[in-house]
Amino acid sequence: SPVALPPFFMRGSIIQLADGELKRVEDLKTEDFIQSAEISSELKIDSSTVERIDSGQSPNAVVIQFSVGELKAQVCVEVLVEYPFFVFGQGWSSCCPDRTTQLFELSCAKLCVGDVCVSLTLRSLR
C-alpha cells in the first residue's frame, strides 16, 4: 500500500540537521542533506534516478522506479502522488505538485523521469 504523507512535509516544519542546525523544511538545500550524511556514521546519501513513473493500485498513488547508487540497483516504491522527493540541485518535487502545494503548502516542482533524487542507504551492512 502507498506510504501516507507524514507531517514533516508541512510548510514551516522544523528540521534538525546532523550538526544540530534547525531549518524549515521549505528552506532545505541539497548541501544540507549532503553535509548531514557526511557527519552521519550510519547513513550515506545515494543518487537515485527516476526511471519510470506508473499508476499505482489506487487512483492517487504512483509507482516510481528508481535506479539507486553506483550499482544502479532497481528499486520501486509506491507513494501518493503528492509525496515529495528532494531532487539534487532543484529541491522538492512530486508527481502532482499542485496537490502537494494544496495539502502541505510546500512549493514543489514536477517530478520527471531522469530526475536525480536524494536517497539514503546504510554505509555498511557488515
Binding site: 512535509f9 522544523i14 546532523a18 552521519s40 540497483a73 539514503l120
Partner: peptide
C-alpha cells in the same frame, strides 16, 4: 513545536545487497 530529524525526509532506498 516538534523537531524532525533530517533523515526522516529522505526515502531509504536500500538495494538488495549481493556479496
Amino acid at each position: 513545536v516538534p523537531v524532525f530529524p533530517w533523515h526522516s525526509l529522505v526515502p531509504f532506498l536500500a538495494p538488495t545487497q549481493s556479496d
